[in-house]
Nucleic acid binder design. Structure first.
Lengths: 328, 328
DNA sequence: CTGAAAGCGCTTACAG
DNA sequence: CTGAAAGCGCTTACAG
């Protein structure tokens, strides 16, 4: 006994061909604007109208199977949390890619971090956008299974180091010379964290400050406070804290408030990412924001090129800029 | 002149068949554990090993084309921002679905809200998970094109109304009897906002409080403060503010701080969603959290059932619970 | 300029 | 128990 097949029968290119009195080949030529063919406007019109009326949508799996390449772009985001600004950028990228006939989809799988072998992934991307900050074996094997070009979107470590340097030099401009680096507990941003910390170290060296103290801020208010407390701040008060990102900065701000330490007078705090909530911290958070250096179109062109098998040299970099508010 | 085809040739089921000395049919039977066939263990073993050695992965488009159904589950999230807890829930769902052979992908397209006609979407889902809180024509036509079952994941409006009621009754327990509802500027959560507000109204009626004042909190610190200021709070101070969600609550907390109003003594504030940052507001945010009523497996079962064409009655509801911190 | 035909890689009745 | 064959819906040389 079969399940009743109630779903409407899909309309195929054969239906369109029949309705417009041409062959399936011609339908395909018209709908794909094949440059090798010269279709009389009258025929073209007829096919287009029939397709429209029947609500024809070409079957993607059939198309991918036949052409051997896929218009799907897979963004791989192996993070526990997703920065809202990154999400926004991806939405814009999706819209631009859509105008070129490509479809951007997100992969945010947990298995990328657990290291367990991945189950079969039932999507066939033609290009992969990797936002990973490090290449674990689990991630590599996941990405490689697709046999598609992999574009690394996170940019040079030098950009991340630049963030650290900018934090230091901003703090220094505010007269803060004894610095602390506040890292995140999160495992998924380890390399990013290391790069920003390295930038802070370089900044300190460059301006002849003492190397930064480093501490990890837990994702719990009580424990964050305890860490700040145990630093014995009254003994040798650091004057500025470079936070790995804005989430850590919120935790630091909370811990300092709980300890009764004034921001920015006693300790200045600077974050990174400029999340939408950053303006609502108490005091409002001074942070770093990434600006796109190149227009979105250029990134789209590179993705299209990669999908055509052309070697892509390097993705455009983002430029970090200070957003000054009250915390530093 | 053709682009050089450097990419390695894909290994197909024919390769596996050749390597293990059986037909493609047998390969398929073994790999799919076809219950209608009885394959001798020895043959089975041989096929499995060959597939393994060759690194064979069945071509998904071919499979979808042939079987006529797709193992892809499409989560449609027409929001400007994505609640981190929802993102987390989706990741868990993805992992569970993967164990059943389904692949969850996200669609977060901007076009869903602009109302512009959507470009062709090159993915063929077998089931759609809609997280939309209202059905615009743009969204409906986007969802309908797939001719796949659509599961509405946001639950009854009654659950959202329950949120509002819980906010009121928590505030009342704290002795706050004059209430304000703080809405978001965001267009994408209109219906959700209306439902939570309706709950607040019902709560006020039920406990014989005056109906809540309603105001919209802008996504800018200065303008948020101006709104709060213009309410002339010193004249008829509301005693509690029910916020649409935690983001709004952060803005409200900032505005109150800027106006020098003490939380929770003068005004208590309660949010909704319990985002990860909620514990780090000043003071820590009392809010509402959604707990899953049913185990994840049940949701997975319903999705699997829907993909097989079975009518799905209703998705399990989430249960709202108060998370008490210091702001109320 | 148009159509008949092959074939992408798979699954699945069907025959042996 | 196994294999030859058909066919999902499309695109694209190729012949006319």
């Amino acid at each position: 006994m079969e399940t009743e097949e109630t779903r409407a029968q899909r309309v195929t290119s054969a239906d369109v061909a029949r309705a417009s009195g041409v062959s399936r080949a011609t339908v395909s030529y018209v709908l794909n604007d094949d440059p090798h063919q010269t279709i009389p406007p009258e025929t073209r019109e007829r096919v287009l109208k029939a397709a429209q009326q029947l609500g024809y949508r070409p079957n993607t799996p059939a198309r991918i199977l036949r052409t051997g390449h896929s218009p799907i772009v897979l963004a791989v985001l192996p993070f526990e949390q997703i920065d809202p600004n990154l999400a926004q950028a991806l939405k814009e990228l999706e819209a631009s890619l859509a105008m070129r006939g490509f479809t951007l989809i997100w992969h945010v799988g947990l298995h990328l971090r657990t290291g367990k072998s991945h189950p079969s992934y039932n999507v066939t991307p033609g290009v992969i956008l990797s936002y990973a900050d490090e290449t674990s074996p689990a991630l590599s094997s996941f990405l490689q299974q697709f046999q598609a070009p992999i574009l690394s979107m996170l940019g040079h470590s030098s950009v991340q180091q630049e963030v650290g340097k900018m934090q230091v030099s901003h703090l220094l401009q505010r007269g803060k010379r004894r610095l602390l680096f506040a890292a995140s507990e999160r495992e998924d941003v380890r390399v990013l964290t290391q790069n920003r910390l390295e930038g802070v170290r370089q900044g300190c060296a460059q301006w002849e400050l003492e190397p930064p103290t480093v501490c990890v801020i837990p994702a719990s208010r009580e424990r964050a406070r305890a860490i700040i407390h145990d630093l014995n701040l009254h003994q040798a008060l650091p004057q500025g804290i470079c936070c790995y990102n804005d989430e850590v900065a919120f935790a630091v701000l909370a811990a300092l408030a709980d300890e009764g330490i004034a921001v920015p007078d006693e300790i200045a705090v600077i974050g990174c990412d400029n999340i939408p909530l950053a303006q609502f911290s108490i005091p409002p958070l001074t942070t770093i924001q990434f600006e796109r250096e190149q227009p979105l179109d250029m990134i789209v062109e590179m993705i299209v090129a990669a999908s055509q098998g052309k070697a892509v040299t390097e993705m455009p970099q983002a430029i970090p800029m200070v957003v000054e508010r009250r915390s530093a």
